[in-house]
C-alpha cells in the first residue's frame, strides 16, 4: 500500500522528514508514534499526495504521487490533524458535498452519508451546523467524511488528540471496527496507549527520523525490560548510586525508573537496602518506556 525509501521533506533549510523508509501492507494498522515536531504530519501529507516529497522514493497503492495524484487520492481517506469541516454546510451536507468531489452521484452520496452518520453515531445531528459540535463529534464527522469514498487506505493524523477519555474510547472502538473490516489504517499519535490499542506495527519517530520499528510487543521486548518499577522519594538525595545493580536505573525529574525482569524482586531488594521511597509502583513496560530508551525524552510533556 505504501512504499517509501529515503523519503525527505524540507521546508526551506529545515528538514522535517529526514530520510525514512516505510512498507505498509494491505489490511495492516500502521502507526507513527512520536512527540510534537517529529515529522509525523509532514509524512502523512506526503502519503496523502497533497505535499510532494523533496527527495526520495514514494509509491502509494503502487502509483507515483507526482504523476497520479488524483487517481491515488480517489482511493484514500484522509483525516487531517486539524479538522477542516465546512462551516457553511450542515453535518449531512459535509458528507454529501464531499462525496461529490469523488465523482459520486447525488443518490449514492446520500445513502453513503446516511450509513456513515450511523457508523459514527451522529444521526441526530444530521441537520446541525458544524460549529456547535463537540470536539469528539467533529472528529467523528471528519472520520466519516474520510470514509465517504470507501477508501482502500485511511490516513488518520492524531485522531484523538485533545479529546476526553470517553470520546477517545468511542473513536477507538469505531477505528477498531474499520480495522476488522479489513481497511488499511495508517495513524499518527503521541499517545502510547493509542498506539498499543490500534496498531499492528509502528515506527517510533523523532526529529524526522525513524528510531525503531516493529509491533508494540516486539518494540517493548527489544528496547525495554518486561517490568518497570517507579520509585518516588520525598527528599532531594541522589539515589542512583544506591540503586545500582537492581536493574537499569533511569532518573527522571519527578521519579526514578528501574528497568527489570521481575518488579517484585526489585522492590524487595530496594527495601533490603534500607531505602524508603514515598511511593512504589510496579508496572509492565510500555511504549512510553521504549521511547524514553530510544530518545532519552518522554513522549508527552
Amino acid at each position: 500500500m505504501i512504499y517509501a525509501r529515503g523519503l525527505i521533506k524540507r521546508f526551506g533549510d529545515f528538514t522535517a522528514v529526514d530520510g525514512i523508509d516505510l512498507d505498509v501492507a494491505p489490511g495492516e494498522a500502521f502507526g507513527f508514534l512520536g512527540p510534537n515536531g517529529a515529522g509525523k504530519s509532514s509524512t502523512m501529507r506526503m502519503i496523502s499526495c497533497v505535499s510532494m516529497p523533496t527527495a526520495g522514493e514514494l509509491r502509494i497503492l503502487g502509483m507515483d504521487p507526482v504523476r497520479e495524484g488524483p487517481r491515488i487520492r480517489a482511493r484514500l481517506g484522509v483525516c487531517p490533524q486539524l479538522d477542516n469541516l465546512d462551516p457553511d454546510l450542515n453535518v449531512r451536507e459535509n458528507l454529501t458535498t464531499y462525496a461529490r468531489y469523488f465523482g459520486l452521484s447525488k443518490s449514492e452520496a446520500r445513502s453513503r452519508a446516511q450509513n456513515l452518520l450511523e457508523f459514527v453515531q451522529l444521526q441526530e445531528k444530521a441537520t446541525s451546523t458544524v460549529e456547535p459540535l463537540s470536539g469528539g463529534m467533529k472528529r467523528r464527522l471528519t472520520i466519516a467524511r474520510s470514509l465517504i469514498n470507501n477508501p482502500d487506505l485511511v490516513l488518520l493524523d492524531e485522531p484523538t488528540t485533545g479529546l476526553d477519555p470517553q470520546a477517545r474510547h468511542l473513536l477507538w472502538e469505531r477505528l477498531f471496527r474499520l480495522k476488522q473490516q479489513g481497511t488499511t489504517l495508517v495513524l499518527t499519535t503521541h499517545y502510547m496507549d493509542e498506539a498499543e490499542q490500534l496498531c499492528d506495527r509502528l515506527v517510533v519517530m523523532d526529529g524526522g527520523r525513524i528510531a525503531a520499528e516493529g509491533s508494540p510487543r516486539s518494540l517493548i521486548e527489544t528496547h525495554s525490560t518486561p517490568e518497570v518499577v517507579e520509585l518516588r522519594f520525598t527528599d532531594e538525595v541522589d539515589y542512583t548510586g544506591k540503586l545500582e545493580g537492581i536493574g537499569r536505573v533511569d532518573p527522571l525529574p519527578d521519579r526514578i525508573l528501574l528497568y527489570t525482569d521481575d518488579g517484585d524482586a526489585a522492590v524487595n531488594e530496594v527495601h533490603r537496602r534500607g531505602l524508603t521511597p514515598s511511593s512504589v509502583l510496579v508496572r509492565r513496560s510500555s511504549l512510553e518506556d521504549v521511547f524514553l530508551q530510544l530518545t532519552g525524552r518522554t513522549l508527552v510533556d
Binding site: 487531517p80 486539524l82 468531489y101 469523488f102
Partner: peptide, 14 residues
Amino acid sequence: YSKTFEAILATPVK
C-alpha cells in the same frame, strides 16, 4: 480561514 480548499485538495479535485 475555513480551510475548505485544503479539505477539497485531499480528494481527486485539482
